[in-house]
Each structure stands twice: as C-alpha cells, then as structure tokens.
Design a protein around this nucleic acid. Sequence first.
DNA 1: TCAAATAATTCAACCAATAAACAAATCGGT
DNA 2: ACCGATTTGTTTATTGGTTGAATTATTTGA
Lengths: 375, 375
Amino acid sequence: MMTASNAPVRQSSVRAHNLALVLQTVANSADPISRASVAGATGLTRATVSALVDDLIAGALLGEVDPAPRSGAGRPAAGLRPSADGPAGLGLEINVDYRAACVVDLTGTVRHHLVEAGDQRAPGSLDGLTRLAARALRLAGAEGLTVAGAALAVPGLVSAGGVVRVAPNLGWQDVTVGSQLHGLPLIVDNEANLAALSELGTGDLPPSFVYISGEIGIGAGIVLNGALYRGVRGWSGEIGHIPIDSSGPLCRCGARGCLEQYAGQEAMLGAAGVTSVESLAGADLTVAGTALGTAIATVVNLLDVDTVVLGGIYAPLLPGLHDAIGAEIARRVLTAGWSPVRLRAATLGPDAAVRGAAGAVLRGVLDDPAAYLAR
Amino acid sequence: MMTASNAPVRQSSVRAHNLALVLQTVANSADPISRASVAGATGLTRATVSALVDDLIAGALLGEVDPAPRSGAGRPAAGLRPSADGPAGLGLEINVDYRAACVVDLTGTVRHHLVEAGDQRAPGSLDGLTRLAARALRLAGAEGLTVAGAALAVPGLVSAGGVVRVAPNLGWQDVTVGSQLHGLPLIVDNEANLAALSELGTGDLPPSFVYISGEIGIGAGIVLNGALYRGVRGWSGEIGHIPIDSSGPLCRCGARGCLEQYAGQEAMLGAAGVTSVESLAGADLTVAGTALGTAIATVVNLLDVDTVVLGGIYAPLLPGLHDAIGAEIARRVLTAGWSPVRLRAATLGPDAAVRGAAGAVLRGVLDDPAAYLAR
DNA sequence: TCAAATAATTCAACCAATAAACAAATCGGT
DNA sequence: ACCGATTTGTTTATTGGTTGAATTATTTGA
C-alpha cells in the first residue's frame, strides 16, 4: 500500500516525474527506441515526449542515433538511447586487501577501472582512496564526462552522514568518511547493498530479491520493488549472525551457532581442511549449504521473495551448495510447494560492489534527471 | 531509494496527490486544524488549500467545526476535521471460533461492531460471514454512512484475487473468497498484516516496525516506511517457522526446532502445564521468551527496525517475556549497543485485526481521495 | 507518381498551482 | 468607541505543463 509522500506537488514536479519516466523508459530499452514508442510505453502524448526528450538531449542525458532499418511504411523513427557523453558515476570500494575506483557512464559502460592492491587496514588508507578517486576523476574529465557523484562501498555498518560505525575486517570503528569528495556528493554504503544494486542493474532479475554476499563475513542486500531496502538506520541485511543452532559453536559476536560459524569463509575452509577458496570447489559443502539454506528459508519466510542471488565466494561454489540449500528450503519454506525459490549465482564477480557504487550514482540521476539538469 | 513509478503524471494527478496530502494532514492532526495551518504544514499556498478543502467538504470527507477559541489577533480560523458522515470502512474477520464485522468511520470511531461466536471450520462459515456483513452494511446505511469498501482478515496465506491458499487452523485450502462483497470491493489479507496496520493507525508508532501476533500460530506484519510490506505474493511475515534450534522438537511443518515449538500457544501451555492462556500470566516464560527473542533478533538484524510490537497472547504476557527477549536481543542484535530495540505490547487487543481491516479500507480513501470523490 | 502510413513538431486550449491583492474578522491600545 | 495590526480565507491574473488536433516530414507500396 502506497502512502502519499508529505511533499506538495507542483507543476514542476510533474515535469520532473515525467522526465524521469521518459529517461528510464529509454534506459530500460535494450535497443534504441523512438519518441513514439516512448509515448506508447509511458502513456504520455507524443507532443509531451518530444518536449521532454528535447530537454534530455540538451542536457546530454539522451542521444539520438540513426534510424534503425524498419519494415513497413511511414517516416522512420529516430532512435533514442542514453548518452555516453553525459553524466557518469564514480564508484569506490575499500576492502581488506585492495581499494578500487571505477567510472561508469549512463550506458552502463565501465569507462575506467583502477585497482590498487595492498592492505587497507593501515591508517591512511582513506587518503589513498581519495588520491585514487582523484586519478579516476582526471581520467573521466579528460574524456569530457560529467561525474555526477561518488559512492563508496565499505564492508561494514554505515550510518547516515557517511559514518562507518564498524567495519570489523578493516579494523574501523566510528570512522567518518563524510558526504563530500573532491566537491562531489558522496554516498557511503555497505558493500552487499551496493553489490545487490549492481546485480539488479543487470536487468535479468525480478524487482524483489535478496543478494547474499559470502566473504569473511556474510552480508545481504535486500531489494524490494526495484529499490534497495536499507532499514531504518541503514543497517539492514546483517544476515551473518542468524542463529542456526543455539547450541552450536561460539561466534565472535558472543552468541552461539551463528550462520557465519557454518558458512563463513573461515568456517568453510576449516571444515574442508584447505586454505584457499579455490580448493573448496571440490570439497563437500553440505554443512555450509544446509546452514545457508536454513538462513535463506528464514529470509524467504519473512520477506516472501522468490529469488535469492548468491555472490562473493558463494557464486563459484553454487553447484556444490545448491542441493543442500534446496533441501533446506523445501523443508522450511512454507510456500515452497506453490512457488519455488529461485537460486542464482551472481554474474558480476568481485567487481560487483564498485560497479554497484557507480550504479547507485547513476540511479540517482535516472530517478531525478531534473535535479541533474538544474545543477 | 525511490524508483519512479511507471505511470505518467498529468495535472489531474497533481490534484489527486494534493487532495490526499491535505486530507492526511487534517486526519493526522489531533485537533481541528485551520486551512492556513494546513497550508503551512504542507507547503501549499492558502489559496490552493482552500480550493482543495472545498472539494473535500463537498465530498463529505472533511467537515468544518466552530472556530476554537484562540489567543492573539487575527480573524479566527475555521476548524477542519475528518467527517463522521462520509466514507466508512467495513472490516471483517473470520477466525477459529468466531466471526466479526465492524464499521469504522473516517474519524476512527467504531460505529458498529458485530461478533458471532461459533466454530468457523464448518462449511458454510463464509455464507455466515456474508450475512454478518449484510447486517453491518444495513446498520451503516441507516446512519447515512457511505461504505467505501470491505476488508477481510484471515488467519492464513492469501494470494492475489482473494484466494486463501491455506488457513491451517480453519482447515481451509485454496478457498476463493473473491474480490467483491455485496457490490463492494473486497480486500482479503492475513490477520497479522491487518492487525499491524491497525497498530500503525494508533499513531504512536514509528513508520517502520514489525508486529508479531501470537496465537495458535505465530505471524508477523511488517510495516516499512508507513506501508505494509506484503511480499512478492503476499506471503510475508511467516515467522512461526524460523528455526531456533535445528536439533529441536519436530514441528507439524516437518522441520525441527521452529519458533512455534517454543513460543506457540500450545507449546507455552504445555511447558507451563496449564490449559488456559490466562494461567500463563504467572508462569515461567523464559523458554518462550528466549525463542521469541532469538527470532526477533533475526528479524531486526535483517530488517533493521527499531520497534517490535507484540500482539495476540503476547501482549498481556509481555511483562513475563520481556527480560528473556531483551537478553537474547542484546546478545544477538549486532547494533543493539548503539540503538536499542523497543519492545511494545499491542494496544488494541483481540479486535486489532477487524479494526485493521476497516482501517485498510479507510487508508485506501486517505491515500486516494480523488478516486473516492469520483466514484 | 500518388495514396497510405508512421514519426515528429507546432499551436491553441485547458487545468492546476502560485502570487499578490483584497475582504473578513478579531485583538490591543488609546 | 475607534483605529491599526494581525491573521484567515477568497478572488484574480499569471505561469507552467500536458493535451489534442492539425501540420509537416519521410518512408513504403500500388
């Protein structure tokens, strides 16, 4: 049920909304699309679409391409598609053993991708990230891109205002990153959240799903109706400490039998008696899969999503995990009989979080192009 | 992050939105409120508010009351408040041992409340409910109320189109209730969902919370940002089978150690060695409280809500449950140290679901008064 | 070469909100 | 008792934005 937002609507809001509608219709179309088709798809008139498209082209959000060869009579349509020379998003990531930046344009193309390996737990890693961001911005500027904003993916809990409450594996506690970077607005968010957005952006996922990221810790990004659900304070998706067995092994969080004790990277390596994630491919993953399945069943019972995407180390290991997860889902999800739960491996690999960060910036432009045009 | 809806916006949508904004501002105000105050609160101009209020008064959604005695200079304001003679919602409930109907007007007053005790598992209980609804409609009609729609609360899983997939305690399976009743649009929904909406309507809850209903089964209603989250297929909140201990007792669902085996009504009665819910008040509820706390911790870790409302049999038992739940939350909710989880007893008692059903209808009117006016 | 078809633009009409002026009703002070 | 200040509510001209119909543009098919 939709509650009306508590802001008044004026004529300019109408235009803002319809600009977003037209831009998104073009962005979601696989092929270049005509103004007339946009009008048909949106319900707006051709006159209105033309006027809106004029603004979007003037602002370099859309570009026109040569008419696609068509069959049938009639004037050929000019194709519209997102412009590659307009706004771009700067995605940043800081993780235990590397930092990364990438620049993505409105077409979804990764224009630049910089990675610096090295332990980020040392002090000064944030300064290093700032320098990396500056390099990426120079590269983008040299190509004539307008960077609309930046987003940083962090493996930890983030509060409003760019404060990292805790990032256990980085050793961070109450680190203020801020909400500006080189004069750009900066979003700071959990890596699983941004990776989930990234997978959403691939287009072949339903509007509601849960992304589970297996790393040293386990996190989840919850996407409901096409939007990331961040929770009241931005701390949603802390799935790693779902209890699997209250008489299980003691976890570093102080409780017993948390998911991480069965399906965390360390636990899986220990159980299989190997030291590298690659070696897990041949191992018996039943214990981890069962625990993961139990946790997934809980999530599905609670949120009624029908798709779960497994990312991080789980993505390559899904074949070995699949049966155990599926068995647990069949046993514990009440509605599994009517409607199966789809399990998918993430498609984007380790870049998902940085790309999702850049995508979050672009999503902001797509959601409110009028604000970008008025900048 | 808000995704633009895929519908075009025209001038009439602006009016529809602002009508809703004005109506909700008046409805959310404790005392009668002037047009000028509405203008101040909404950001609309006084002229616009006046025009919108004219429509709302003409449609019997708002009424004017005598100016409240005021201090200070200036022309006295005419007070606006929701009309008691306008639209009303028909709430219906069917449960194991009773059926109920209630009529609630826009001021939130319960105008009629009919309850028929008796076993509803017998065939024909739906016909009985239809007759009960007819009685309530006659009473409402005699008072000049315009019943805008009906909603039915069912203790089970409901699909779109008014199909009850399964209601275990009613013995229902794939029962089609339909989406019309006596010519009115009919919403069918889970009782925990509607009870959650009902608690939301009391006004002293934050916009995001989880309502947990303890009955024979355990259900949850999830309210996010002031709106009920129903899930992809309407089956969200199935909390009763969250695993507490995978080596625990066998549950009727086929899995082991489900929450219901510790904190369900039967389990609690069995553990305390009593036969009535009233007798539980003095019993030791540590086991149930711990299990409930574990489940709540899972929900909070996942959804990051800071308020949990306990309803059904849990409401009167909260004093006995509180400490065990709190201990488990402190142990398992990662963010409990920064921001406490508030536990509340539901305030509305056993009527919550029926009243929530009526409230769901009224919420539809408040969310889109233009549709009601155009009927 | 012309008619039909489809795409895109132009323009008058309309709808809704705004701003500013105006009318209404009260209070406070002299 | 009266006048100015103050606040509420309405009236009116203006503006922004969509619509629908007419118009122009460009192609296919007969």
